[in-house]
Simulated assay, not measured.
Amino acid sequence: MVIDSCEIWELPEVFYELIHLTKLKITNCRCFFGSPEAIENLISLEVLKLEGCLQISKVPDSIGNLKKLKFLKISLNYRLKKLPEHMDQLKCLTHLIVNKCWLSAWPESIGNLVNLEVLSLSECTRLSELPESIRNLQKLNILDIDMCVNLKELPEHIGELKRLSNLRMFNCRALRKLPHSVSDLEQLEELRCEKWAVTHLWTPLLPSLKNLRFVVWTLDSS
């Protein structure tokens, strides 16, 4: 089900009965601020996308009730400042995409999303750090932190992500050093960053990254 560019404040009451709904996409509903009670009843939901809903300031704790949710995308929601701790109950989640939001930190409980394969935080410009618990995401293939311009460091134990194959970190201009464990990313195949980052951050580590086949030099921001 797609709800696009509608002047609604919350989901209609009929949503309380859609217990078999598997996909829901709400886009460009600028007045929509969320309906926690309705969402928690969508127990069969596997895909949830909230994009361009400018009034959403929080994700309800009850999202943890969506036990079958596999794909969650929240983007262009600039009032969203934090995520609930109860997200760690989403054990089936494989894709978590939170782009262009106003988050300054992530809950440590993200490390309990043990089936997560894709984590995207691009253009979360207030984000200054990632939780150390990210080391527990042993199925993670893709980590996207493009345009996280205030991110100052990567987690010390990021090298424990043994399946990480794609790292996107274009224009992370506050990031001036990498943890030593980065050299343990044995499956890393593609790195996206600027020329200065390759030269100053990654060059000393390249001999240890045997599977790194592509270094994508995007437009230098320095």
Rank of each mutant, 00 (worst) to 15 (best):
T199I: 08
K68W: 11
H200W: 07
L69H: 13
A197T: 03
E186A: 00
H95R: 10
C148R: 11
L175V: 06
R126H: 01
L72M: 10
L154V: 14
S44R: 09
I56Y: 07
I3L: 05
F214Q: 13
I97F: 04
L66A: 13
K68T: 12
A105N: 10
L154K: 13
C101I: 11
L113P: 01
E153Y: 12
L90F: 07
V215D: 02
L21D: 14
V47Q: 09
T94M: 00
I19P: 03
E117S: 01
N77C: 08
Q187G: 11
S181F: 00
Y78I: 00
E132G: 07
D4L: 05
F170D: 05
D146R: 12
E117P: 12
S62P: 04
R176E: 08
W196Y: 04
W9D: 03
G52W: 12
I145C: 06
V2F: 09
L164G: 02
S44K: 13
T27E: 05
N112Y: 04
L178D: 07
K81G: 12
L83M: 10
K73D: 02
I56Q: 01
D220A: 09
P204I: 11
R168Y: 02
S5G: 14
F214P: 01
E46V: 07
T22A: 14
L116F: 06
L201Y: 14
E85A: 14
T125K: 03
H180K: 00
P12V: 00
I3D: 12
L188Q: 15
V47I: 15
N112R: 11
I26Q: 02
S183F: 10
H95V: 15
E117Q: 12
E85Y: 15
E186F: 01
P60F: 06
E17I: 09
V216A: 13
S221E: 06
F15A: 00
R213Q: 13
L69R: 01
L209Q: 06
S221N: 04
C31S: 05
L161N: 11
R126T: 13
R135A: 07
E7D: 01
L80H: 11
L113S: 10
E129V: 05
E37G: 06
P131T: 05
I19C: 07
N115E: 14
R168P: 09
G159S: 09
D88R: 08
I110Y: 12
V118D: 03
G111T: 13
E46H: 15
L11P: 01
E129I: 00
W106H: 04
N99K: 03
L175M: 02
N77V: 05
R192A: 06
I142F: 08
L11W: 02
P131Y: 02
K67H: 15
Q138P: 08
A174N: 09
S221F: 14
L151N: 02
D220G: 08
M1D: 13
S128N: 12
E40T: 09
P36E: 03
R176V: 10
N65H: 12
E13Y: 04
D144C: 06
F170K: 04
L119F: 05
T203Q: 14
F33R: 15
Q89G: 06
K70H: 10
R173N: 14
E51V: 08
N171H: 03
